[in-house]
Design a protein around this nucleic acid. Structure first.
Lengths: 205, 205
DNA sequence: GTGATTGTCAACTGGCTGGTTGGAAATGCT
DNA sequence: AGCATTTCCAACCAGCCAGTTGACAATCAC
């Protein structure tokens, strides 16, 4: 019998589950596979998390916590509005580039109507600071003449997310359609540049 | 024994499969359920399509054909560049609004690396006319002074798709995050308006 | 009308699945 | 040291799953 380390065991299960759910979706993921990936006995999934849905939710909470953490670390205070929006767009793009599993997990969760997200007290408490940031930056930008009036901060937030998220989310089918590899560093650089450009040009007065 | 109608049977199976794959993804969808939804004997799935993957691919080909059909019917010829882009954005938005299952099917297919799409001769032959359309419109717009120079048509095509697709794709989680129903007609109208606005403002010289 | 082909039916099947059970042993507390 | 609790192990299990099989009958072609 293995020496005990409950925290490490729990962690290994979460890491394995993250990979498995990203690869196979909730319905396709296999508890046996999660345990095998973690290198532990399958019963430990039930021991630590209770059931398949519960470990799935724990993974969702984890990936959301990551992106919220990144958002909190943005440090846009004191930047001129244009530089702030640019930084925000770039950071958002970079986070998605570094965490493609966030995207596929979210897509699968959305297909199921966000049932788990909606039932989570923890996620409910996990506000994104970004909308109020965007709102403040827009106001400052309008005041100093850098941005046009009348832009809704929620809509802009969604659009900034959309322009990067969709690219990563749909890279396989887009690559198939265009017959070129959008996963390449060059393609990602081009996309990042375009996203920044499209938004910044749109915000002009 | 039922009177025979092979075309109707095949059709019923495809319709049912479309619903089931959209609801449950490829891994989660059940052949029994597809047959039950279609109101036919399960063995007919195998008779008409061969196996689960094959009926899944048939559904993908169907939904792609639909969007290609809509694209072909756009009739942008002769429109001024600004009106043409606007119409294109609006039609794209409207198609996604009317076919949310296209989005979830594509998301699931992308999670699997677009394996089916990449293997389909039929989809390979199914070019989107949109990139060349966008390219032509941009050129005309630059020439007549309506649009700024240097916009890549492929990137713009991806962005136009992104701004609508992401909104519909992520409506459940976004609704949960914002605590408001983005599925409502008012929310969709607001989004449509914003998408048109963001892009048109961005294209200004 | 006859035979071949095709569409439809019902039942079957080997392996897979999420979850359960019983027990061993590591650990902590008194 | 003894007992209680917690962590870990291995095996089990009822039901599910994609796919198969055998047969019937509708339809077509000659």
């Amino acid at each position: 019998m293995q020496r005990r380390n409950p925290e490490a065991t729990r962690r290994k299960l979460l890491v394995a589950a993250r990979h498995e759910f990203a690869a196979s979706g909730l319905a396709g993921a296999r508890v046996d596979e999660i345990a095998a990936r973690a290198g532990v006995n399958k019963q430990l999934v039930y021991h630590y998390f209770g059931d398949k849905d519960a470990i799935y939710l724990a993974v969702l909470e984890w990936v959301y916590e990551e992106i919220r953490e990144q958002e909190r670390k943005l440090n846009l205070e004191g930047l001129p509005p244009e530089a702030a929006i640019r930084k925000l767009i770039e950071a958002s793009f970079d986070h998605l580039a570094a965490h493609p599993d966030f995207i596929v997990l979210l897509n699968d969760e959305n297909r199921g109507g966000a049932r788990h997200v909606r039932g989570s007290k923890r996620l409910e408490a996990m506000h994104s600071p970004l909308v109020s940031m965007v709102s403040k930056i827009l106001k400052q930008g309008v005041q100093n003449g850098a941005f046009r009036r009348g832009i809704d901060p929620v809509q802009l937030y969604i659009s900034i997310a959309a322009l990067s998220y969709f690219f990563f989310s749909n890279t396989p089918t887009l690559s198939a359609i265009f017959g070129k590899d959008l996963r390449s560093p060059a393609a990602q650089r081009a996309r990042r540049k375009h996203v920044v450009d499209l938004v910044m040009q749109s915000l002009r007065p």
